[in-house]
Design a protein around this nucleic acid. Structure first.
Lengths: 256, 256
DNA sequence: CATGCCTCCTCACGCGGCGTGAGGTTCAAG
DNA sequence: CTTGAACCTCACGCCGCGTGAGGAGGCATG
C-alpha cells in the first residue's frame, strides 16, 4: 500500500493474484475503475475500490460473467433467480460432460484392446463404442429375413463409402427434424414434412434396392425400436411411434 | 442430392443439422473443403467429402477442437494419447464444475432461508456459505484469549470496509505465493520471500494494533490450522506447517 | 540536473467457433 | 428473359483477457 492509503495497479494485481492487464480490462469495461488517478494518469485504487474488488472476486468465483457481475453489483438483480439460473446452467454442463467422459472412457478401453496407433483405429473405435451400430443391427435382425438383410448389406456396399454418413448422420437427423415439426403442431400435409418424407423414402429406396418389402420392414424397425435405430437416448425418442403414423399421413396426403 | 451425385452447401447443411456458415468456416480453415466447384464458384460436395464430414462429426462429438480434428484426420496422431489427454481435460473440468455446483447449492439454500431480494444478500450468503469464515473464527477462538479476540474485531472495524478484502483475499494469496516459492526451492533469504514476509507482518500489525502477543497467536493459528485459516482444501495446504518455519527463517535473516 | 531503470500508460491484434449482416453473383424454374 | 431463392466473398462481433509495441511518469543514484 501507499502512504496515502491507495494501491497502484501492479501492487494490487500482485496482492490478489491477478494480472495488471486484467485490472486494466475491468477498468475499460467499467467493472472496477479506480476512484482516483495521479496527475500523470496512474491509477490509484482506494479502500472503497478494494471492497468492490472483493465483491467482484467473490461473484467471479461462482463462474458468473463479468457483465452479469457488473449489473449485479450495480443493483437491480434478484440474487435468488441469478443463482438458480446459473446453477441450472452448471448442472446442464455437468450432465453433458459426464456422458462425454463415459464415451471417452469406453473409447480408451477400446483403443487399449486394439494395438496399432493409427487414426483410422480411432474412428473404428468410435463406431464400436457407440451403442448405435450394434443395437441397430440387432433391431434389424429381429424383423428382416436373412435375404433382406443380405440385400441391405450389399446395397450399403454398392452405395459406397458414403453409406456410413447416410445411415448414421443424415437419416437420424431427418427423424429429429420431423419430430420437431410434429411436436410444434405442424400438420402432416405441410410441404416441409413432405420434403422430409420424400428424402427419407429416397434414402430407403437406395438401401433396399427398390425392394418394397425390405423398405417396409426397415420402416417397421424405426417405428417399433426408434431408440436402437437412431442412437438417441430413449427419452429423446419418446413419441417416435406416433411420429411414424405422422409420416405415414404425410405420405398418404401426397402420393404424387 | 443432385443429379450428378453431389450436394450443395444448403442441402448438406440442412441434412446434417449444421449451418451453411459452419461449412463455410470449415472450408476456409481447411478442415472440410468440397472437392469440386461449379463454374460459377458454388461448392459441390462429393461422396468422398461426405465420408470426411462424417469423420469430422464423429470427432467433434468428442469435444475435440477443429484444428485437432484436422491434424488427426490428416494423419500423424496417436489416437490413444489424444483420447487420454482429452479425457484428462474433461475430468479436470468435471471436478471443478462439481465443486462449483456444491457451492451454488449451498448458496441457494442460504438465499432460500433469508428473504429479501437484494444483491448485498447474495454477498452475505456467499460469505456465509464459504467454510472459510466460520472455520477461521473457530481456529482463532481456540488459541486467542477473549481480550485478544475483541481486540482483533475492533481493529477490523477500525480498518474499515477493506478488512474483508485484506483477510479473505490478500492474506491467503500471500500464503499461496510464499508456498510456491518454498516448494520451488527458493531460499528464505531471497528478497522475494522477504517482501512477502514484510507485507504479512504489516497486515498482522494492522489487525493486532501492534499487540505482539496477539499477532504471534494469529501466526500460531496459521501454523497449526492452515486449512481453516486459508480456506484452501486440506490437500492444498499440505506442508504449510513447514511454511511457517520457512517464513520465520526469512524474518530472522532480515531483521533490518 | 542528468542518468538509468522500473512501473505505468494507451493502443491494437490474437484466440475459437462460428453468428450475423452487407452487397453482389449464379442457378433453376416459369 | 425475368424472377426469386440460394449461393458467393468480405468483414465485424462475441468473451476474457494474453501479449507485445511504443512512449511517459516516478524514484534512486551520480
Amino acid at each position: 500500500m501507499n502512504d496515502s492509503g491507495t494501491w497502484k495497479v501492479g501492487a494490487l494485481a500482485e496482492a490478489c493474484g491477478l494480472t495488471v492487464r486484467t485490472l486494466h480490462h475491468w477498468d475499460t469495461i467499467g467493472l472496477l475503475s479506480p476512484s482516483r488517478r495521479t496527475p500523470g494518469g496512474h491509477r490509484e485504487y482506494t479502500e472503497d475500490d478494494l471492497v468492490r474488488l472483493y465483491q467482484v472476486l467473490a461473484l467471479r468465483s461462482l463462474g458468473l460473467g463479468l457483465e452479469t457481475i457488473a449489473t449485479c453489483l450495480d443493483g437491480g438483480v434478484d440474487p435468488r433467480r441469478l443463482v438458480r439460473d446459473h446453477l441450472a446452467g452448471v448442472e446442464a454442463a455437468l450432465a453433458s460432460l459426464t456422458s462425454l467422459r463415459e464415451r471417452l472412457r469406453r473409447l480408451d478401453a477400446e483403443l487399449a484392446a486394439g494395438r496399432s496407433p493409427a487414426t483410422t483405429d480411432l474412428l473404428d473405435a468410435l463406431r464400436a463404442t457407440g451403442a448405435t451400430a450394434p443395437d441397430r443391427a440387432q433391431a434389424l435382425r429381429d424383423r428382416l429375413g436373412a435375404d433382406q438383410l443380405r440385400l441391405l448389406q450389399d446395397q450399403a456396399a454398392a452405395v459406397g463409402p458414403a453409406a456410413h454418413y447416410l445411415l448414421e448422420v443424415e437419416w437420424p437427423e431427418l427423424y429429429r427434424r420431423a419430430e420437431r415439426l410434429r411436436t410444434t403442431g405442424v400438420p402432416p400435409a405441410d410441404p416441409r414434412v413432405r420434403r422430409l418424407v420424400a428424402r427419407m423414402d429416397e434414402l430407403g429406396e437406395r438401401f433396399s434396392g427398390g425392394d418394397t418389402a425390405t423398405s417396409a420392414a426397415v420402416r417397421g424397425a424405426w417405428r417399433d425400436a426408434p431408440h436402437a435405430m437412431s442412437g438417441e437416448t430413449p427419452a429423446a425418442t419418446e413419441g417416435w411411434g406416433d411420429l411414424a403414423d405422422y409420416l405415414d399421413r404425410a405420405r398418404e396426403g401426397a402420393p404424387e
